[in-house]
Measured scan of single mutants.
Amino acid sequence: ESETFDVELTKNVQGLGITIAGYIGDKKLEPSGIFVKSITKSSAVEHDGRIQIGDQIIAVDGTNLQGFTNQQAVEVLRHTGQTVLLTLMRRG
């Protein structure tokens, strides 16, 4: 069981404050995608409180990250504006 949710964030001096990890899993058993690996102290993400380590980032400002490499996803996140809309999925 999984839930998908949107989080809109405004960057602070730390930026968004997440590091991400790309993961290619076994299609049947484990998900592939871009996941939140860590959250920086005092960052926008930590202050917001809704995003957790292990959440999958589905889209950034409407750009679907399906099939993106870790590096491609980093580039998408790097080129966002001051306000960012993240679409995430959390597995229950």
Rank of each mutant, 00 (worst) to 15 (best):
E1A: 09
S2M: 15
S2T: 12
T4Q: 07
T4C: 09
T4R: 07
T4G: 03
T4F: 12
D6C: 11
D6K: 15
E8Y: 12
E8Q: 14
L9S: 02
L9A: 00
K11C: 08
V13H: 15
V13Q: 15
V13A: 15
Q14S: 11
Q14C: 11
G15V: 02
G15D: 11
G15I: 03
G15A: 07
G15Y: 03
G15L: 04
G15P: 07
L16E: 04
G17H: 04
G17L: 00
G17R: 03
G17C: 03
G17W: 03
I18F: 15
I18D: 00
I18H: 00
T19M: 08
I20L: 11
I20W: 09
I20M: 07
A21V: 09
A21T: 15
A21S: 12
A21M: 11
A21D: 15
G22F: 11
Y23L: 11
Y23M: 14
Y23F: 11
Y23S: 13
I24F: 12
I24K: 14
I24P: 12
G25Q: 11
G25C: 15
G25H: 14
G25A: 11
G25I: 05
D26W: 08
D26I: 08
D26N: 14
K27D: 15
K27C: 14
K27F: 09
K28Y: 11
L29D: 12
L29W: 13
L29Y: 13
G33R: 12
I34E: 01
I34F: 13
K37F: 03
S38L: 04
S38R: 12
S38D: 10
S38K: 11
I39N: 01
I39P: 01
T40S: 13
K41D: 08
K41E: 10
S42Y: 12
S43M: 07
A44V: 12
A44F: 08
V45A: 15
H47S: 12
H47A: 13
H47Q: 13
D48W: 05
G49M: 01
R50Y: 02
R50Q: 07
I51C: 00
I51R: 02
Q52S: 08
Q52H: 11
Q52M: 10
Q52A: 08
Q52R: 13
I53T: 08
I53Q: 06
I53S: 06
G54A: 03
D55Y: 01
D55T: 00
D55N: 00
Q56F: 06
Q56R: 10
Q56W: 05
I57L: 10
I58T: 06
I58E: 02
A59I: 02
A59S: 12
A59V: 02
A59R: 08
V60D: 01
D61F: 01
G62F: 00
N64R: 10
L65A: 00
G67N: 12
G67M: 05
G67F: 05
G67E: 11
G67T: 08
F68N: 06
T69Q: 03
N70S: 14
Q71K: 13
Q71G: 10
Q71V: 09
Q71Y: 07
Q72D: 09
Q72P: 01
Q72K: 10
Q72H: 08
A73T: 05
V74R: 14
V74T: 12
V74N: 14
V76A: 11
L77Y: 04
L77K: 01
R78Q: 11
T80I: 02
T80E: 01
T80C: 09
G81K: 10
G81V: 01
G81R: 08
Q82A: 10
Q82M: 07
T83D: 08
V84F: 06
V84W: 00
L85C: 14
T87Q: 06
T87R: 12
L88T: 02
M89W: 08
M89N: 12
M89A: 11
R90G: 01
R90Y: 02
R91D: 09
G92H: 15
G92Q: 13
